[in-house]
């Protein structure tokens, strides 16, 4: 009896987490450069079904991973919207060290430096990229390799990095950014194309998330039924014993 409730309890905990995850993905369906999170919970659930072993097995923690597949491109026509096509990241300078993002909805600050949505400096290969006062916003041109020119004069190049196959060790830092663990170095990105006037849309697929959501709520329901049934069995047993 206790084994059932332990297993069901663990399943319910995981399902609740999975549900939170889906809600977070759905909330970010319009966040440019957002990468959906998924967990290998489904896998651990099937493991749970197979192993009728001690409850510890079923409580094996699931991992949450980031799905780095490319989102689609949305044309915005804004000079400072950049989308990345291929593997890699822009680098954002923060007092706590560099952060990495694929959200290229940039701005200029009052000094003419290219900054992200909340005003953090976007790293260039040689320091911040500053647009000279003499050049207008419409004269900023970004080449596919990330070279920024104002009125035809190159003024800098976006620092573009890649983590090759270690991408999955990046941790989400919120505000569209990822942080790298301390001992992980980035490599210069190869074959990454910057598209000016575009945003990379979130790679959350509504249908997929909705299907997952239905599955999670049904599984939850089933687990709840299980608790209810096991309670009923116990009651029947007690009734028999008492009569």
């Amino acid at each position: 009896m206790s084994e059932i409730s332990a297993q069901v309890g663990s399943a319910i905990r995981s399902l609740t987490q999975e549900f939170d995850l889906i809600a977070h993905n759905l909330a970010n369906v319009s966040t440019p450069g957002f990468k959906r999170r998924y967990n290998d919970f489904s896998k651990s659930l099937s493991a749970l079904e197979q192993t009728a072993g001690p409850a510890e097995n079923s409580r094996k923690p699931a991992n949450i991973a980031v799905d780095f597949t490319q989102g689609s491109f949305i044309e915005t026509g804004r000079t400072l919207d950049m989308a990345l096509c291929g593997k890699g990241f822009f680098v954002i300078e923060t007092p706590q060290g560099p952060l990495y993002t694929r959200n290229g909805a940039f701005r200029l600050n009052e000094n003419g430096q290219i900054v992200d949505m909340i005003g953090r400096i976007v790293a260039g290969e040689s320091g911040p990229i500053t647009v000279p006062q003499a050049a207008g916003l419409s004269q900023i041109n970004v080449a596919a390799d990330g070279t920024v020119s104002a009125a035809g004069v190159p003024i800098g190049k976006f620092k573009l990095v890649d983590f090759l196959d270690k991408e999955n060790r990046l941790t989400p830092a919120g505000l569209n950014c990822f942080a790298a663990p301390q001992n992980m170095d980035s490599e210069p990105a190869v074959g990454l194309v910057v598209k000016q006037g575009f945003q990379e849309s979130s790679n959350v697929q509504l249908t997929e998330e909705l299907v997952d959501m239905i599955m999670v709520s049904r599984l939850y329901e089933a687990n709840m039924k299980l608790i209810s049934k096991s309670g009923e069995t116990a009651k029947n047993l007690l009734d028999v014993a008492m009569s």
């Binding site: 915005t76 000079t79 909805a105 989400p172 569209n176």
Partner: peptide
């Protein structure tokens, strides 16, 4: 891997498009 659950989304900012 680890286990991190996000808490949603916010409107970062609005920006005027000067095209």
């Amino acid at each position: 891997g680890g286990m991190e659950i996000g808490s949603g989304v916010r409107a970062g900012s609005t920006v005027k498009v000067f095209s």
